[in-house]
Measured scan of single mutants.
Amino acid sequence: MQIFVKTLTGKTITLEVEPSDTIENVKAKIQDKEGIPPDQQRSIFAGKQLEDGRTLSDYNIQKESTLHLVLR
């Protein structure tokens, strides 16, 4: 499925993911596309910070959902 990741600069990245993917996985995909190390990424969805060990389905993130990426 496709999800979108919006950065603070307003750029939107499209990722191909599975509901079973962990947040860690997703951060690795963002690193592949953007070169941002996962330890600098904070992902926010529906106002909640997403934890690395959880999966997209844990957070009820579905296709075409938009995550927000904040850098630390």
Rank of each mutant, 00 (worst) to 15 (best):
M1P: 01
M1Q: 00
M1E: 01
Q2Y: 13
I3E: 00
I3D: 01
I3H: 01
I3G: 02
I3C: 02
F4C: 04
F4R: 03
F4L: 03
V5Q: 00
V5L: 05
V5W: 02
K6N: 05
K6Y: 08
K6P: 02
T7V: 10
T7R: 05
T7Y: 11
L8S: 13
L8I: 11
L8N: 13
T9A: 11
T9E: 11
T9I: 07
T9K: 11
G10A: 02
G10C: 07
K11M: 08
K11N: 08
K11E: 09
K11T: 09
K11S: 07
T12Q: 06
T12S: 05
I13F: 13
I13L: 09
T14W: 06
T14C: 06
T14S: 10
L15P: 00
L15W: 00
L15T: 00
E16S: 11
E16D: 13
V17D: 00
V17M: 03
V17C: 04
V17G: 01
P19H: 04
P19R: 05
P19Q: 06
S20A: 08
S20N: 12
S20K: 07
S20Q: 10
D21T: 08
D21N: 05
D21C: 05
D21Y: 06
D21K: 01
T22W: 04
T22H: 01
T22Q: 02
T22N: 02
I23G: 00
I23P: 01
E24G: 13
N25S: 14
N25L: 13
N25D: 12
N25R: 14
N25P: 01
V26I: 13
V26Y: 04
V26K: 01
V26L: 13
K27D: 02
K27N: 06
K27M: 15
K27I: 13
K27S: 05
A28V: 11
A28H: 12
A28L: 15
A28D: 06
K29L: 10
K29T: 04
K29W: 04
K29Y: 07
K29N: 02
I30A: 06
I30C: 04
I30G: 02
I30Y: 04
Q31V: 07
Q31C: 10
Q31F: 15
D32Y: 10
D32G: 08
D32N: 10
D32E: 13
K33I: 14
K33R: 10
K33V: 12
K33T: 11
E34H: 10
E34L: 15
E34T: 15
G35T: 02
G35K: 06
G35H: 07
G35F: 06
I36P: 07
I36W: 14
P37F: 10
P38T: 15
P38N: 08
P38K: 15
D39H: 12
D39N: 11
D39E: 13
Q40A: 10
Q40M: 12
Q41S: 09
Q41V: 15
Q41N: 08
Q41F: 15
Q41C: 10
Q41D: 07
R42N: 13
R42S: 14
R42A: 15
S43Y: 15
S43L: 15
S43A: 15
S43Q: 14
I44N: 04
I44Q: 05
I44H: 07
I44C: 14
I44D: 03
I44R: 02
F45G: 02
A46W: 13
A46H: 13
A46M: 14
A46G: 10
G47A: 04
G47E: 07
G47P: 03
K48Y: 10
Q49G: 05
Q49F: 15
Q49Y: 15
Q49N: 10
Q49I: 15
Q49E: 15
L50V: 04
L50W: 04
L50I: 04
L50T: 02
E51R: 08
E51C: 09
E51K: 07
E51G: 03
E51Q: 09
E51T: 05
D52Y: 05
D52S: 06
D52R: 01
D52H: 04
G53T: 09
G53C: 06
T55C: 02
L56R: 00
L56M: 04
L56W: 00
S57W: 08
S57Q: 12
S57H: 09
D58A: 04
Y59C: 03
Y59S: 01
Y59G: 01
Y59Q: 03
Y59E: 02
Y59K: 00
Y59I: 02
N60K: 09
N60C: 07
N60M: 07
I61K: 01
I61Q: 00
I61W: 00
Q62D: 07
Q62N: 08
K63Q: 13
K63N: 15
E64S: 10
S65Y: 08
S65L: 02
S65N: 08
S65T: 07
S65R: 00
T66L: 10
T66E: 07
L67W: 00
L67K: 00
L67Q: 01
H68M: 12
H68Y: 14
H68W: 14
H68G: 03
H68K: 07
L69K: 00
L69P: 01
L69N: 02
L69H: 02
L69V: 07
V70T: 07
R72G: 11
R72A: 13
R72H: 11
R72F: 12
R72L: 14
